[in-house]
């Protein structure tokens, strides 16, 4: 149970970072922390105590296997996370070129 709670704490750490940090890159890193907490949660979902890798052995059908589906989901989600992170980084580099700073307080053209 403690592991599940730690996932949620990690999520909140990421959220705290997104809300309070002023640096664009630090916001991106905080988003990645949130993402990783969700992946950890999924990895825990598939875990079964005493389970082995889900490669079915015909000789011994009664063994306990871990749930393979969350692992597949996490892999897919990691790929998506790669795309979002790189997209965010590209935007940050462009923003830095336009404004000459990473400080989010200086970047406020849009309002209202």
């Amino acid at each position: 149970m403690i592991a599940y709670i730690m996932c949620f704490v990690l999520f909140l750490v990421g959220l705290y970072g997104v809300i309070t940090k002023r640096n664009l890159v630090k916001i991106a890193v905080s988003l990645s922390i949130m993402e990783i907490s969700v992946f950890l949660f999924f990895a825990l979902l598939g875990y079964i105590d005493g389970g082995v890798a889900p490669i079915v052995d015909p000789a011994d059908p009664a063994r306990v296997y871990v749930d393979p589906l969350p692992q597949a989901l996490v892999l897919t989600a990691i790929v998506i996370g790669l795309a979002t992170t790189s997209m965010l980084m590209a935007i940050i580099i462009r923003l830095y070129r336009k404004y000459g700073t990473f400080d989010i307080r200086e970047i406020k053209n849009l309002r209202g």
Binding site: A90, R94, Y96, R97
Partner: peptide, 12 residues
């Protein structure tokens, strides 16, 4: 992804 991030940086 790697190349385009470098290209952005070199351009700037």
């Amino acid at each position: 992804i790697f190349l385009s991030l470098i290209i952005f940086k070199e351009e700037s």
